[in-house]
Amino acid sequence: MGPEDPRALAKGPYWLGPLARLLSKRRYRYDRGAAIAPWDFALGWGRMSDTAVLRRMRLWQADRFYFYAGSGEPPIPLQEIVESSANMHLIPATEAVERALARARPGQVVRLEGYLVNVYGPEGFFWRTSTTRKDTGAGACELVWVARFVVR
């Protein structure tokens, strides 16, 4: 991404490249976490936001997991995929944030502001956030309290 890219941000003589691209999203209504975190967004940055890389992969979400596959050799090393993409369980702070999340579309560059959180609920409900990007599988997703969400 360079200054000629329409996604670039400018401040004086500097250009800044937004980092997070929405790869996939899924709404949950019926699982135990849906009341608090109705949306899961798979986000990618670095080469996991590169259209040429993404065209060689199939991405999808199900059961609170984010999956990727392709035919043949992956377009980038698997560890780079793990460390530069994430499935995030999003907790909208307000109705306005909820509406903004609903309008977001895969491929868009997004910015969110908020906090990584653990969730404590009724009847002993506990949902722990991941705090590293080196993990995979159950428990590897981030739980994010989204105070502000913007599509670039």
Rank of each mutant, 00 (worst) to 15 (best):
I81G: 05
Y68Q: 06
A35F: 04
Y28H: 15
K11N: 10
V110M: 03
A93S: 09
V82S: 02
G114R: 06
N87T: 11
W15I: 03
S49R: 08
Y30I: 09
P13L: 15
E142I: 05
L116S: 12
A20L: 06
F125V: 12
R27H: 08
R7P: 00
M88D: 00
V82D: 05
V109I: 14
W145F: 15
I36M: 13
N87G: 14
E142Y: 03
Q108Y: 03
A42E: 00
H89W: 10
V109T: 13
V110I: 15
A140S: 15
L23K: 01
E113N: 09
E95N: 09
W39Q: 11
A20K: 02
A104Q: 07
L116A: 12
R21Q: 10
T94L: 03
I81D: 05
Y115C: 00
F149I: 04
Q79R: 11
N118A: 10
R47M: 04
F41M: 07
G33L: 15
R148K: 13
G12F: 11
F149A: 06
R99A: 15
N118W: 09
R111L: 04
W45R: 04
A102W: 01
L112E: 05
L112N: 04
Y120P: 04
G121A: 15
R58H: 13
Y30H: 15
R7L: 14
G17P: 03
Y68G: 10
D31V: 10
G33W: 05
E123T: 11
G107L: 07
T94N: 07
Y30G: 12
W145D: 06
D5R: 03
F65S: 13
A69V: 06
G70R: 14
S84A: 00
I81S: 08
I36P: 00
E4K: 12
L143H: 08
A147V: 00
S130D: 11
L101D: 07
L23A: 05
N118P: 09
G72E: 11
A93C: 04
V53F: 01
R99W: 02
T136C: 13
V117E: 12
R7F: 08
S130G: 14
A37H: 11
Y30E: 15
R58V: 07
A140P: 14
V119F: 10
R47Q: 08
N87S: 12
R26G: 08
H89C: 06
A69F: 02
T132V: 10
A52K: 10
P92S: 12
D40P: 07
Y115V: 00
F125S: 11
G139A: 12
L59H: 01
L23S: 01
A10M: 12
E83D: 05
K11Y: 04
G121T: 13
P6M: 04
D5E: 07
E113H: 07
W127Y: 13
